[in-house]
Simulated scan of single mutants.
Amino acid sequence: MTVGVDVDLALVGGGGAASLVLAALGRENLSGVRVAIVDPVHKRGQDRTWAFWGTPGTALDPLLSASWNAVDVVTPAARRTLPLSPLRYAMLRSGPLYDLAGDAEKRLDAIRIAAPAGALTDDGDRVVVSHPDGTPLVRAAWVLDSRPRRPARPGRTNWLQHFRGWWLESGRPVFDPGRAVLMDFRTPQPPRGVSFGYVLPVSDRFALVEYTEFSPAVLSGDAYDAALRGYAALLGLDLATLTVREVENGVIPMTDGVFETRPSPRVVRLGTAGGATRASTGFTFTAMVRQAGRIAGEVAAGRPPLPGPPYPARHRWMDAVQLRALDRGLVDGVAFFDRLFDRNPAQRVLRFLDGTTSLAEDLTLMASSPLLPMARAAGGDALARLRRKR
């Protein structure tokens, strides 16, 4: 098999996960590392928004559209304002990240191959990335593959985080730029699942207002729009005086299925395909940032670009139990999240969702959840695991 392009590292896919890796590689003082990107589309501009929490002072700070030191969690009974210090909640739109990745691509003198990728043929020494028609595109020592794919082993519980957001613009001040809404559970709840709205204001006249569900199936476009109109009314917004500047949609898997993060010796999967999506919520971005930083550090040190597990094994188990409890109706979703934030500091909950809490903190979080229903869910999960092994 003859391949004209030979590199050290090939990125297959050019979305958020690959862009974060490129940006991280660009921050390292790399010399002689040959990089290629294989993707039919060169990502540019605004096609998505990431909202995440973390400690200020990162390399992504100059790219942020907004950040908040406190957030609101709202239920039909109460509104809580949660201080986040030393963390903060932040918004990053895709355009600045794609631009940063593009700058890094130039500094690295990376090769861009504008074609879809098909098979990855790994002989244990090099990997050949081929076009779907079988034509070889590039040969690499290592391949980082961020293309979406299903779990290698189907989950016992399979839900989705699915959403639609409107970027709303007003001719007069209607938003509070100092106040973000993390979760607003006053939305009508689905028969099976959890719904909430949230608000991320960039200024007093421009904000992202979004409707999100954790549930087994997506809605129709009309249903998302109806939900957003209803949520806007709850917020006291008069849509007749506002302009919808952009619309964002998304569907993210929430599953206890197992993703194959290392399908062959020299192929590493990133993003959702690499297990970066938190099964209990669908949150992904912070784990992708960690993956990118670890990969860049390993490459700079002359070691294999292996990011390590995105979450501790105990967190994957806790997620599976929570999903099962929600799916089987053992707990009420709104009451579950309300109790979690009521009985724990916001920082602990958010760090758990990021996969950075200690074992002691995890035990405290478990003790603050409804014990009998969660014990039933844990028992059911253990039984399901045993049955699958037979």
Results as ranks from 00 to 15, higher is better:
119 A>C: 06
159 W>C: 13
39 D>I: 04
255 T>F: 14
244 V>M: 10
293 G>R: 02
223 A>Y: 02
174 V>D: 03
310 P>A: 06
150 R>F: 01
122 D>E: 12
98 Y>W: 14
88 R>S: 14
250 G>E: 02
180 A>Y: 02
96 P>I: 00
87 L>H: 07
216 P>C: 15
44 R>H: 11
321 V>T: 11
28 E>R: 14
34 R>D: 11
151 P>L: 12
331 V>S: 02
191 P>G: 03
315 H>W: 09
288 M>S: 15
371 L>D: 07
206 F>L: 13
299 V>M: 06
53 W>V: 13
32 G>N: 14
345 P>A: 04
74 V>M: 05
390 R>Y: 11
122 D>M: 07
30 L>R: 07
60 L>Q: 10
175 F>Y: 08
229 R>T: 15
273 A>V: 08
136 P>L: 00
367 A>Y: 06
158 N>I: 00
197 G>D: 07
159 W>D: 13
373 P>A: 00
121 T>A: 14
339 R>I: 01
260 E>L: 12
321 V>W: 05
292 A>K: 01
362 D>C: 11
162 H>I: 13
64 L>G: 09
174 V>T: 08
116 P>D: 05
328 R>K: 12
89 Y>G: 01
258 V>Q: 15
195 S>W: 03
92 L>F: 06
3 V>D: 02
142 W>P: 09
206 F>H: 13
46 Q>Y: 09
21 V>N: 05
48 R>K: 01
296 A>E: 12
19 S>H: 06
130 S>F: 04
204 D>E: 11
101 A>E: 07
377 A>E: 05
72 D>I: 04
99 D>F: 02
365 L>S: 02
325 A>H: 03
343 R>H: 09
270 L>Q: 10
201 P>L: 11
97 L>A: 05
7 V>H: 09
377 A>C: 02
55 T>Q: 14
278 R>Y: 09
82 L>N: 15
260 E>V: 04
381 D>I: 09
332 D>N: 05
289 V>H: 00
145 D>H: 14
215 S>W: 08
212 T>Y: 08
34 R>A: 14
128 V>C: 05
54 G>L: 04
340 L>T: 07
111 I>R: 13
128 V>L: 03
250 G>A: 08
198 Y>I: 03
70 A>Y: 12
307 P>Y: 02
279 A>W: 08
96 P>M: 03
300 A>K: 00
267 V>Y: 08
258 V>F: 10
352 F>M: 11
